[in-house]
Computed example of a mutant assay.
Amino acid sequence: MTAKPMTKTQLVAALAERMDTDKKSAQSALDAVTGVITEEVANGGAVTLPGVGKFYLRERPERMVRNPATGEQIKKDADKVVKVTIAKALKDSANG
């Protein structure tokens, strides 16, 4: 489990091979998918990739947090975070 994560270049090469196309087309396809997901989630929507998971935006309320260096309690403003819920099919394939 200490293998390095796949880089974008390696992912593009793998996509090109699977799609039986050149790397430039695979790069364009990957960039398009990434762009659509980013735009939709940034606008408050959600995107589901079947077999992979669901990307969505979650709002976190204002809360008290602790500075680990000093132990001081400070108030953190409300913010938004991107979440990913992994699909059951991917979980099952990872667990054998």
Rank of each mutant, 00 (worst) to 15 (best):
Q10N: 15
K83G: 02
T85D: 12
T70Y: 06
G45W: 13
A94M: 12
T7N: 11
R63D: 03
P5E: 13
A69C: 01
D79R: 08
I74S: 02
P5S: 14
G51T: 00
A94R: 04
M6P: 02
D22A: 13
D22T: 06
A29N: 08
A29K: 13
N67H: 06
M64F: 04
E72R: 12
N95R: 06
T48W: 04
M64D: 09
A29F: 13
L90I: 00
D31L: 04
M64E: 14
P5L: 07
I37R: 07
A42K: 12
G53W: 12
I86F: 10
K88M: 03
A14M: 10
A13R: 15
S93D: 02
K23Q: 12
D20L: 13
G51Q: 04
K83L: 06
I86V: 10
A94T: 00
T85L: 10
Q27Y: 10
D92F: 06
T34I: 12
T34R: 09
V84P: 04
I37A: 10
E62F: 01
L90Q: 03
P68D: 02
P61F: 05
K91N: 08
K23S: 04
A3E: 06
L90D: 01
V36W: 08
L57F: 07
V41P: 07
R66A: 02
V52E: 05
G96K: 11
A32F: 15
A32N: 08
G45I: 03
M64P: 00
E62L: 05
E40D: 05
L49C: 04
M19C: 12
M64W: 08
A32R: 13
N95P: 00
M19P: 09
L11N: 05
L49Y: 10
L30N: 09
A16V: 01
V81N: 03
R18H: 13
K4V: 00
T21H: 15
V65D: 07
D31K: 11
L11P: 05
G53L: 03
V33S: 15
